[in-house]
Nucleic acid binder design. Structure first.
Length: 286
DNA sequence: AACGCGTGGAC
DNA sequence: TGTCCAAGCGT
């Protein structure tokens, strides 16, 4: 399968973006922080938060020493603030179980809060050079097109897909292969308007060869937003992020007009540990 | 297995 | 303009 791997790795050598979590200067902790922030969030939005985060908390121990609410506040508007809580919890676990050093083993990584198969594989590969199939949304899309000849992968990872990804991991420099496929998916083999004209593997891409047939699988799940609890949670979290200390209930009440939904959202935030209540006032957690 | 979970840029 | 979507995870 070097027909696919070689041109793709050569393309990466020439077109890779210079990102602060790549290269020799990046510590395993920096790689880990970047992977948490990049879960469902675009690179451009992560960059400034990543920089200030590592300046404030250059090691897992530094973050573990801070209140989790400070992590949530520093997370800013990256979205999915439970990730900030989980990163804080992961830092705490790293101090407790691994002497403050990010572990290199996949099994240790995936046991950390907020670390699933993708993130464990990514950290093991990018920070430690280990050999893993790194199967993220970009890689899945590239393989779906180049190998399977369909525009989009299935809604969840299939056994065949996992096997394919594992079969492609090279013996030499597996981490560069992993990041090269991801980068191609991010920059060229994009979900909408893929740039097949400049793709280094368009010549052996099954989907391209077939004339780029339109997707005809099951409908892909969209993300409702307006009027959902998620939107309400976002409003409430914005109030707390932007207020030092605690706020009166009235401040939260002003963020959403409908009582039932607002109370439900607030309760769910408390259940998640993103909000704490003390004597009728509300704040980010300690 | 399918769903809930934020945010904002691109088209 | 509204829809799509972005280096997923936990349940």
């Amino acid at each position: 399968m070097d027909a696919l791997r070689r041109p793709l790795v050569e393309w990466y050598a020439e077109h890779a973006r210079e990102l602060p979590w790549r290269g020799a200067g990046a510590t395993p902790w920096a790689v880990m922080v970047s992977e948490f922030m990049l879960q469902q969030t675009p690179v451009a939005r992560v960059l400034p938060v990543f920089a200030s985060w590592l300046e404030t908390w250059p090691t897992p121990g530094d973050l573990a020493d801070a209140p989790s609410g400070e992590a949530v506040r520093a997370w800013g508007r990256l979205g999915y603030p439970r990730r900030a809580l989980r990163l804080h919890a992961a830092a705490t676990a790293i101090v407790k179980r691994h002497g403050g050093e990010v572990p290199a083993a996949y099994d240790d990584l995936i046991a950390l809060p907020g670390v699933g198969d993708y993130t464990a594989s990514a950290i093991a590969s990018f920070a430690f050079g280990d050999s893993h199939a790194v199967l993220d949304t970009n890689v899945r899309r590239v393989l779906a097109r180049a190998v399977s000849g369909v525009e989009f992968p299935a809604s969840s990872v299939t056994r065949a897909e996992r096997g394919l990804a594992e079969s492609l991991v090279p013996d030499v420099d597996p981490a560069t292969w992993a990041i090269a496929v991801m980068e191609l998916g991010a920059l060229v083999c994009t979900a909408a308007n893929p740039k097949c004209a400049v793709c280094p593997v368009s010549g052996q891409c099954a989907w391209n060869q077939a004339g780029r047939p339109a997707y005809d699988g099951p409908p892909r799940r969209g993300q409702a937003w307006a009027g959902t609890d998620r939107q309400v949670r976002g409003r409430l979290m914005a109030v707390l992020r932007d207020s030092p200390g605690s706020v009166a209930k009235a401040r939260l009440d002003a963020a959403w007009p409908e009582d039932t939904q607002r109370e439900r959202a607030l309760k769910s935030l408390q259940a998640d540990g993103l909000v704490v209540e003390r004597q009728g006032r509300y704040a980010l957690p300690d």
